[in-house]
Amino acid sequence: MRVLHMIPDISVSNGVMSFICNYAKAMPSDIVFDVVYFCEKQPSRQSDVESWGGRVYKIDPPSPKDIFGGKMNAFFSKHKGEWSALHIHCPHFAPFIAPSAKRAGIKNIFVHCHTTEYSLVGNSRRNQILSLYAKYFIDNKFACSKKSGDFWYGNKAYRILSNSVDCKAYEFNPDVRSSIRSQFGFCDSLVIAHIGKTDVTQKNHPFILRIFEYVKASHPTARLMLIGAEPTNELTALCNSLNIQDNVMFLGARNDVKNLLQAADVFLFPSISEGLPVSVVEAQAAGLPVVMSDAITREVAVCGDVVIKSLDDGAASWADDCIAASKVVRKSTYSQLVDSGWDITKNAARLANIYKSRV
Rank of each mutant, 00 (worst) to 15 (best):
M1C: 11
L4F: 05
M6Q: 11
P8S: 08
D9P: 00
I10W: 09
G15L: 09
I20N: 03
K25R: 12
V32C: 06
V36P: 04
V36N: 06
V36M: 12
F38H: 15
C39G: 06
K41T: 05
S51I: 01
K58A: 10
P62L: 15
F68N: 13
F68A: 14
G69F: 06
M72A: 09
M72I: 06
A74E: 11
F75I: 02
G81M: 03
H87T: 06
H87D: 08
I88V: 13
P91M: 13
A94L: 12
A101V: 10
I106N: 08
I109L: 14
F110G: 07
H114C: 07
T116I: 07
N123E: 10
S124D: 12
K135Y: 11
C144P: 04
S145Q: 08
S145W: 03
D150M: 14
F151S: 11
Y153A: 08
N155T: 08
N155K: 15
L161R: 09
K168T: 09
E171N: 12
F172E: 01
R177V: 00
S179W: 11
I180G: 03
F186R: 06
C187S: 15
C187Y: 10
T198H: 12
T201P: 14
F207S: 10
R210Y: 11
I211K: 08
Y214L: 12
K216D: 04
S218T: 14
L224M: 06
E230I: 12
E234P: 13
L235N: 09
C239I: 01
R254C: 01
D256R: 10
D256W: 05
V257Q: 04
K258V: 00
Q262W: 06
A264T: 02
E274A: 03
V280M: 06
V281S: 00
E282Y: 00
L288R: 02
V290D: 00
M292E: 01
S293W: 00
D305W: 02
D313C: 13
A315Q: 04
A316V: 08
K331C: 07
T333P: 02
G341P: 05
T345E: 11
T345D: 12
N347D: 01
A349V: 07
N353F: 04
N353G: 14
S357V: 04
R358T: 06
R358A: 05
R358Q: 13
